[in-house]
């Protein structure tokens, strides 16, 4: 992520410290993670200590301080999905991608995460890729869902 993009985002919020979290969220959605240089830049321009930014970045699960893959795979582990076999979907996805929840593969293609409920329990088991919900996934078809993304 280049520093100009970070500056643009900061300027959009008129350098106001009260918009700190919004700025961090914008950087996160632009870049999928928060690089150290970007945070230092935000700290300088908003005059907020890096320690405070780091506290916020580690506090909220929406932020990541490590690089994320191009596609974010979320597998629902909520009660409804769980009883409909979410565990098996997770196992299949782990086998196919070779990564565990919280990790990113070496090609930076997928980042895998488990979530506790996506709010569409009638569609369980649910997996979400890049914000798009795939419902009623059967273990044999999980690979097909992943293959749609390059």
């Amino acid at each position: 992520m280049n520093i100009e993009t970070v500056d643009e985002i900061i300027d959009k919020y008129r350098c106001e410290a009260s918009y700190l979290i919004q700025i961090m969220l914008d950087i996160q959605s632009e870049n999928h993670w928060l690089p150290n240089e970007a945070l230092i830049r935000v700290s300088e321009k908003l005059e907020v200590p890096v320690a405070r930014i780091q506290h916020i970045a580690t506090f909220y699960k929406a932020f990541s301080l490590v690089p994320k893959g191009r596609h974010r795979v979320h597998i629902c582990m909520g009660t409804a999905c769980h009883v409909r076999g979410a565990r098996r979907i997770l196992d299949i996805v782990q086998d196919l991608t070779g990564i565990k929840p919280g990790e990113t593969d070496l090609e930076m293609k997928y980042s895998l995460e488990t979530v506790n409920c996506l709010g569409c329990c009638a569609l369980g088991p649910v997996m979400e890729v890049d914000g798009k919900v795939h419902g009623k996934v059967i273990p044999g078809k999980a690979g097909d869902v992943l293959n749609k993304y390059e």
Partner: peptide, 9 residues
Amino acid sequence: KFAVGFVDR
């Protein structure tokens, strides 16, 4: 100086 801070929760 803000050299040390809390992280995580």
